[in-house]
Nucleic acid binder design. Sequence first.
DNA 1: CCAGCTACTCACCGATTGGTGACAGCGGGG
DNA 2: CCCCGCTGTCACCAATCGGTGAGTAGCTGG
Lengths: 219, 219
Amino acid sequence: MLNEAVILENSPGTGEGPERRVRDRGATERAIIVAAKGLLAEEGFQNFGINAVARRAGCDKQLIYRYYGGLDGLVEAIGADLGTWVKDRIPEDAGGMFLLTYGDLMERLSLLLLDALRNDPLMRRILAWEISENTEQVRRLSEARSKALALWLERMRGSLAPPKGVDAAAVNAVVIAAIQHLVLAAAAGGQCAGLSLKTPKDWEKAATALKRIVRGIYG
Amino acid sequence: MLNEAVILENSPGTGEGPERRVRDRGATERAIIVAAKGLLAEEGFQNFGINAVARRAGCDKQLIYRYYGGLDGLVEAIGADLGTWVKDRIPEDAGGMFLLTYGDLMERLSLLLLDALRNDPLMRRILAWEISENTEQVRRLSEARSKALALWLERMRGSLAPPKGVDAAAVNAVVIAAIQHLVLAAAAGGQCAGLSLKTPKDWEKAATALKRIVRGIYG
DNA sequence: CCAGCTACTCACCGATTGGTGACAGCGGGG
DNA sequence: CCCCGCTGTCACCAATCGGTGAGTAGCTGG
């Protein structure tokens, strides 16, 4: 899947001559995006640059300048791609659940978000990037990510209203902050504040604590 | 304070000749550490390197190799310095507080940690570094930081025991995760999950939400 | 068949990086 | 006294970075 876009000319049999890329701009553009996302997800933003992306995409960096106007444009294109995140992450049975109370909803949402982030290295890297830098590049990505997240939350929330007397926006932000940091810390070092986060059993404990917290607020 | 360690020879009057650094290894070593910490706190880990530190310290990078054995050793020295963090952060009145319950304690601790991190750019950068990379360098720093944090928590906790029936370690890890992420997100982009975190009023809301969460668990 | 457009590659630029070896100047102990 | 060691400086290295201009290879319409 990674190299699917790196299509080589069918060299006749032995394939002696230097293999060539087909002349297909669309495929090359896709290859670049795939390479950039993969690079960001696997290596992080530390070594994310024009040269590295071009190397991974198997093309010349000049094409990145031509097709995307440089790294900034490429990042923006990745951000646009992030819009599809929502569709992939909404469970099928979302509409058929028994979400009687706002507490039910937030508990379920919290656990879903936890798992979604745990299984999405690209999102994690973007999240870590957001926290570490404040350049224009990352700001664009950040916006796209938070918009995707907000849309996801809204879709999941449906018509359930938060209880009165609680600043749900603030509380939910704190809960989301906790989830994001847990996932990031786990991915980086396998623990957070002394709590090991490696085995499924560890995550079970974290999830239970998270549930308790949500239930402590919303009942 | 920044350049206090950059001491120049008292050039006679007009000071024509090229000013020279005094030959004081201790002072130079201190200047390097100060420069490294300042650089990390102000610029982040992105541009943290031998050349940058040497430039800021106003000395040759060769000295960093000589005195600390390179960046790794320097980072380790910074980690060792982090041990002093605890002493600076324990409020005078810690012993005289009325901490009747574990809930009182955790509420107070949470808010103290929130403020402490908000006012400590170096700690924030290290935290962000931990989350973004997993090199040997950052692992050493991370260990020192988490050790300092654990010691701080222990000192503050005193002899109060957590209530039965709650996995306090997990819950507290989640709460700490939330605090750390809130502070990091605020420092980077001024918001977290749609919640603005710029004005004192914003932080008031966040703190209130945090208190509610802690109280929801520990009563 | 050739002109022209497009997709693509290559070679080069200056700047910066981490890292090393050689050298200069001061100061104290023989 | 001179010499040696310590402190600090400088010059240089290969590698990599982002970025650009020029040139090549293949398809297509006249």
